[in-house]
């Protein structure tokens, strides 16, 4: 494995490791973006209006039980005849990844919006906030921690599952697994697995970092250094009941 990873020959060319990582990331991030565009507004809508709550449990569970490889092959059979190019393979892969990522984002966004303190929303309305402002100023910032943790688990799933694209002769780090298996080259397979794990770990940390930056310490109950309006710095008390992000 070490040998495989440190062999300079594997780090260049059309099927070199950087290319594979690049492909892997592109599939993953496009899928995540599409999933977020679908699941976040839907989760907010259901959370705010309470309409379609049945979808959350039903759809989420159904999608979770999805056999990804089986679905991928089915979709290729259905879709690829319509697209002569590589698109006929890329599209099915993306659909599978999106379907995997929607449930965690949807359920967490919904749960996040539901969990917003009803008294805070009531106070906002009572002070004369209009519906849109309540959403942008109160409901969204307060549901951000849960929403982002949904995005985080979705991205982990996508990165680890994006390997299946290689089944249908596309790129990505799955190549190392499939080709390694075909060539009985265990070091190549292990290298692929390790790279996927590292990639997942890196993005998990990145999202954790982003979460810490954008979520108010008032919600995570993190202890922050408080500054007086005069500019003087005072340490605030330590958190009594720290909650995980």
């Amino acid at each position: 494995m070490i040998n495989y990873l440190f062999d300079p020959a594997h780090w260049s060319g059309a099927d070199g490791i950087p290319t594979l990582i690049g492909e892997h990331l592109i599939y993953s991030l496009i899928a995540l973006a599409i999933a977020a565009v679908i699941a976040v507004p839907l989760g907010i809508y259901i959370g705010v209006t309470g309409k379609g709550v049945f979808m959350i449990a039903g759809l989420a569970n159904a999608l979770r039980a999805l056999p990804s490889v089986g679905l991928l092959i089915l979709l290729v059979l259905l879709i690829s005849p319509a697209f002569p190019s590589k698109m006929g393979y890329i599209l099915p892969s993306l659909i599978v990844l999106v379907l995997l990522a929607v449930p965690p984002i949807l359920t967490n966004t919904y749960a996040g919006v539901r969990a917003v303190d009803a008294a805070a929303v009531d106070a906002a309305r009572g002070m004369g906030f209009r519906t849109m402002k309540i959403l942008t100023d109160v409901q969204l910032p307060c549901s951000l921690p849960l929403m982002l943790s949904g995005v985080r688990s979705a991205l982990l799933q996508i990165i680890s599952t994006a390997t299946i694209a290689a089944y249908i002769s596309l790129g990505g780090l799955g190549r190392l697994l499939i080709d390694g298996k075909a060539q009985n080259d265990y070091s190549q397979m292990v290298a692929g697995a390790v790279l996927v794990a590292l990639l997942a770990l890196f993005f998990d940390q990145l999202l954790a970092f982003i979460t810490r930056r954008v979520v108010s310490p008032g919600l995570t109950r993190r202890t922050v250094k408080a500054t007086l309006p005069s500019g003087e710095v005072i340490p605030s008390e330590t958190a009594k009941t720290p909650t995980a992000v």
Binding site: A123, G126, P141, C142
Partner: peptide, 20 residues
């Protein structure tokens, strides 16, 4: 909304914005 902005409103459990 404009009516509400003319009237101060205090609710039972304060209803503060937790993120501010």
């Amino acid at each position: 909304a404009l009516l509400r902005r003319r009237i101060g409103y205090v609710i039972q459990h304060a209803g503060l914005f937790p993120h501010r």
